[in-house]
Simulated assay, not measured.
Amino acid sequence: MKRFIFLLSAIMLTGCSREFVESMYDVNYEPTNRFAKNLAQLPGQYTKDTAAFDALVNSFSGNIEKRWGSKEIRIAGKSNYVKYIDNYLSRTEVNFSKGTIVVETIASTEPKEHLRKAIITTLLTPDNPSQVDLFSSKSIKLEGQPFLYKQVLDEDNQPIQWSWRANRFADYLIAHKLKVKTVDFKKAYYVEIPMVQDQIRIRSYQYASIVRKASRKYGIPEDLIYAIIKTESSFNPYAVSWANAYGLMQVVPKTAGRDVFKLVKNRSGQPSPEYLFNPENNIDTGTAYFYLLKNRYLKGVRNPLSLEYSMISAYNGGAGGVLNTFSRNRTRAMRDLNSLQPNQVYWALTKKHPSSESRRYLEKVTKFKKEFNANKT
């Protein structure tokens, strides 16, 4: 218990990074109520004033709890999008892993009209994360291409791009799919909207030209970039974690982002959340970090396949975690790693890595990489 309290105190005092947290604990980066106070900061706000940010996030989670109760706090994460509107009376959760969308309201007056507005907002939310404040109930300016375009079909099996179609589908859902439940002693009206079966593939196509450009620029295979994005965010451009990781490739500004700025781009400082919420910047930065892993931190790994396994593992748990799998002594670790066949390196990194999350991570990425190549043929 003391160690847990120390961890939370250290995070609040120093800021959190994936490497710092994983050096102490195996962490599932999906959002939980327990870690609501340590959410990543808002785009463009409180980049230096951490006290102001902590106050803001406490207020955000407190507003949710006031409306929905302590057991019904939902917050955006790596593979889910959550947005509150209507002074926290209505919300949407898109679960990209399950392919489901739940839109609900606890408004006590004219609940169907509140729900209708929330459905329309969900269907027309733009594909521009920098314009959507995930950590407030601010309204969204509905313009440009919807980020759920082609991933949801209306009652006529048509994609929803325009306001008239979104309005009509909202009316249909309320007339035919409306459900009611009790939330914190309140009546909640909601609808469940299924996403199309190939919703992940549809989102991945949006970034094909960006992935190709980054692949050629840094010499990192396209299939590896796609597999990392699928593992990190399920191609959710709004992905954010309490560990201060942002966007499609879940780049941590203070670690990978800072390294890329300094060692690849010759820039000072670190990327801002706005910078990383831009898909092109995010994929470029994440791929550039792979370039550093390949050509700097793990350049001593001789076998190309062993190097790839090491890079994948290091993207999640750091290069130090990879080497510590083989020995605490860096020179000996590299020697031992190079003495093994690639399948033995894979076995060690998926069975003996200090972090259980990093062990699973390498398995997921290699699986998605195989799936990507199988679907290409």
Rank of each mutant, 00 (worst) to 15 (best):
I106N: 02
H176V: 02
A107V: 13
P194N: 13
P129L: 03
S136C: 12
P194M: 13
I210R: 06
P159D: 01
N128H: 13
A214Y: 05
T105D: 12
L224G: 08
Q131K: 14
E192D: 10
I101A: 06
I140A: 13
R168A: 03
T125Q: 07
I202F: 09
T100G: 00
H114E: 12
I228G: 00
L224D: 08
V196Q: 01
Q158W: 00
Q158R: 08
A118N: 13
R203Q: 14
V211H: 08
E192S: 03
L178E: 06
S204D: 07
I228Q: 06
S137I: 11
V152E: 11
K213S: 11
D198C: 04
A227S: 06
R216P: 00
E113G: 10
L173E: 08
L148Y: 15
Y149N: 10
A166T: 10
K217C: 00
S163H: 07
S163G: 05
K117N: 14
D86R: 09
P111F: 08
A175I: 00
I225H: 07
L123P: 04
Y189F: 06
T109A: 13
A214Q: 01
S163A: 09
I119N: 01
N167R: 03
R91M: 15
L173G: 01
Q199L: 11
P159C: 04
S136P: 09
I119G: 02
I193G: 03
A188N: 04
Y88P: 12
E222A: 11
E232S: 11
L148R: 15
D133S: 11
Y190I: 02
K117F: 14
P129F: 02
D171V: 04
F169W: 01
V183Q: 08
D223C: 06
L224N: 03
P146G: 02
K141F: 05
S137R: 04
R91N: 12
N95E: 09
K187V: 07
I229H: 04
L153W: 07
R165S: 15
K187L: 04
D154T: 05
Q158K: 09
E222S: 05
Q151R: 15
Q199Y: 11
A170R: 02
Y189S: 01
A166P: 06
F185V: 01
A118W: 01
L124V: 07
V183E: 10
Y172W: 13
I220P: 02
I210N: 00
A175G: 03
